[in-house]
Write a protein that binds this DNA or RNA. Structure first.
Length: 472
RNA sequence: GCUCCCUUCGUCUAGUGGCCAAGGACGCUGCCCUCUCAAGGCGGAAACACGAGUUCGAGUCUCGUAGGGAGCGCCA
């Protein structure tokens, strides 16, 4: 059997993490089984669908590297096909025109709710004699759902699910203008596209039996269904625009690597023993839809942060540097005159959680500063530090080969000569060169800042100390 | 209201009747290391929603209760 899966978003917003994970699972199931992954845009709701959303969704998938083999296929291009199938269903008596007004339906629903019943269409037009056809009303088309029996399927993630046909009613498959509705178009599309496995959010569980009945009416074999649970916000509440439902590209802008987000997302609801770290290749090799959980899970930024750091440290520095360049750009920092970005990555990756943070904390490698951080200066640029700083300045100036090794040696030697421990030299030096008390190891920092800038900043620090001495 | 689905540490999870006085990971936390911040090493606290039943034995099977979620559209 050829495995074919699809991701079928409706273009009414960006690609958020829930959708991204559904797409990922669908993608992995295809890749893990040598199948194809198809992107279909469900844009039959012309009112709400936008071009910008289509672009945003594809941007998100591209950033994550979720490549589709076919598509994007637009439902709006397939209206003639839907019309054809609707005609077929009508001709076979599997669908019928319904003239009921929305008002009548609304009343019906209210009455049923009040009586404690599940609201359902009552089938008024189901067996109407054509001679009774009311004039002047353009009807909708309803699917003739079986009255008896039940629908059962073996869900790929939930196991057997059974729903009785008397829970279902005759759903509308075409509006008065002939435009098709969701539960109908998915079936026609999945059938025509030869989709073998439908992997989607569990909010579709209740739609599945209706769709299976349509497949049967069409004499088509239904695909296999796998309903994956939803992702909740940090607080356990449903993701909504107010609760962290942001587009995945927001994570890119916030300094996350796609490898990290993907790794995080795949572990939300899926596991492989005790393993936590998965590259996309690992996922393709190990993923099995049967190992997906049934329970909804909450998004946890702390763990994403940890994974992001892991991937910043593990991926080739050159690769991470490309993503870092974007962050410097966002901050308006010109990196052309400073150290190579890959070197920044190798010294900073283990001390930050995101690339954004990395760029922010690396500003001093590229730009001079006007003043020292007040607290750091107060503590470290004191009169007592003047001599050590002067000494280290001289030692640094004498260095010809500006390498971390030589710098390290110079600091050790200076400390020893002055009978001080390393911290007494390194910390004032750090504040002098960085402007603040936090940086990578002092030798690497000096190395990256460069000799000229280091000496200039040390002079600035000595001036600062001198002023302080004069003031007392 | 009705139907369907879900329920192991704060969070993500392992667990498919005995290997579980429940393991891993993030986070939190103690100690060590240390030029700052980190990273790292070694420890620690922390969970089977509840109640019945089946069984020699239940986190694992069944039923019920509670709690949560979804659906019940001429939205997708």
């Amino acid at each position: 059997m050829t495995i074919r899966t699809r991701f079928a978003p409706s273009p009414t917003g960006f690609l958020h993490v829930g959708g991204a994970r559904t797409a990922l699972f669908s993608y992995l199931h295809a890749r893990a089984n040598d199948g194809s992954f198809i992107l279909r845009i469900e844009d039959t709701d012309i009112e709400r669908s936008t071009e910008a959303s289509i672009q945003a969704i594809m941007d998100g998938m591209n950033w994550l590297g979720l490549e589709w083999d076919e598509g994007p296929i637009f439902q709006t291009d397939r209206f003639p096909r839907y019309a054809e199938v609707i005609e077929q269903l009508k001709a076979e008596g599997e669908a019928y025109p319904c003239y009921c007004s929305k008002e009548r339906l609304e009343k019906l629903r209210e009455g049923q709710m009040e009586a404690g019943l599940k609201p359902k269409y009552d089938g008024k037009c189901r067996d109407m004699d054509p001679v009774d056809t009311p004039a002047g009303i353009t009807p909708v088309t309803r699917f003739r759902n079986p009255l008896e029996g039940e629908v059962e399927w073996n869900d790929l993630v939930r196991g057997s699910i059974t729903i009785s046909n008397d829970e279902l009613d005759d759903l509308v498959i075409a509006r008065p203008d002939g435009s098709p509705t969701y539960n109908f178009t998915v079936v026609v599309d999945d059938m025509d596209m030869g989709i073998s496995h439908v992997i989607r959010g569990d909010d579709h569980i209740n739609n599945t039996p209706r769709q299976i009945n349509i497949y049967r009416a069409l004499d088509a074999e239904p695909p296999l269904f796998g309903h994956v649970p939803m992702i909740l916000g940090e607080d356990g509440a449903r993701l909504s625009k107010r609760h962290g439902a942001v587009g995945v590209t927001q994570y890119r802008d916030d300094g996350y690597l796609p490898e990290a987000l993907l790794n995080y997302l795949v572990r939300l609801g899926w596991s492989h023993g005790d393993e936590e770290i998965f590259s996309i290749d690992d996922m393709v090799r190990l993923f099995d839809i049967a190992d997906v959980n049934r329970k909804p899970s909450s998004f946890n930024t702390e763990k994403l942060n940890w994974l992001n750091q892991h991937w910043m440290r593990s991926l080739p520095a050159e690769q991470v540097a490309e993503a870092l360049a974007w962050q410097f750009e966002l901050l308006g920092i010109d990196t052309s005159t400073g150290p190579a970005l890959a070197d920044i990555v190798s010294v900073q990756a283990e001390r930050v959680k995101t690339l954004k943070e990395m760029a922010e904390q690396s500003r001093m490698f590229y730009e001079d500063f006007e003043e020292f951080d007040a607290n750091a200066a107060k503590k470290n640029l004191r009169p007592v530090s003047r001599e050590p700083v002067e000494a280290i300045r001289a030692a640094l100036e004498a260095i010809e080969e500006w390498t971390p090794e030589n710098l390290h040696q110079a600091i050790i030697d200076t400390a020893e000569t002055m009978g001080l421990n390393m911290g007494k030299i390194a910390q004032p030096l750090r504040v002098a060169v960085c402007g603040s008390g936090v940086s990578p190891s002092i030798d690497k920092t000096l190395w990256l800042v460069g000799k000229e800038r280091c000496l200039k900043r040390i002079d600035m620090a000595l001036e600062f100390i001198a002023k302080r001495e004069a003031a007392t």
